[in-house]
Simulated assay, not measured.
Amino acid sequence: MPVIIFEGPKMTKEQKEALVKEFANSASQITKIAPEAFVTLIKESDPENVGVGTILLADRVKK
């Protein structure tokens, strides 16, 4: 069972559904493994929980 892990911003349910579908279908085409075999894990991070360099991403986005 192949696993795809995506770490990124908060998304809507519709965005997550589209992401999972696209990841599984693309990985399937490349690996010749059925898309149903893939497990996709989505880890959402709030910008206040991410540091870029020496500042929080939430502060960087404000600029």
Score class of each variant (00 low, 15 high):
M1K: 12
M1G: 13
M1A: 13
M1V: 11
M1R: 12
P2Y: 02
V3C: 05
I5P: 00
I5K: 14
E7L: 00
G8F: 03
P9G: 10
K10S: 08
K13Q: 11
E14L: 08
Q15C: 04
K16A: 08
E17C: 01
E17N: 10
L19W: 02
L19V: 05
K21L: 09
E22L: 10
E22F: 05
F23D: 03
A24G: 02
N25M: 12
N25K: 12
S26F: 00
A27P: 03
A27M: 13
A27D: 02
S28R: 03
Q29E: 13
Q29R: 14
Q29P: 00
I30N: 02
T31P: 02
T31A: 11
T31I: 01
K32N: 13
I33R: 07
A34P: 09
A34Q: 13
A34N: 15
E36D: 13
A37K: 13
A37F: 03
V39K: 13
T40D: 03
L41T: 11
L41R: 10
E44K: 06
D46S: 08
P47N: 07
V50W: 09
G51R: 12
G53L: 09
T54C: 08
I55F: 06
L56A: 14
L57P: 06
L57I: 01
R60N: 03
K62P: 00
K63T: 07
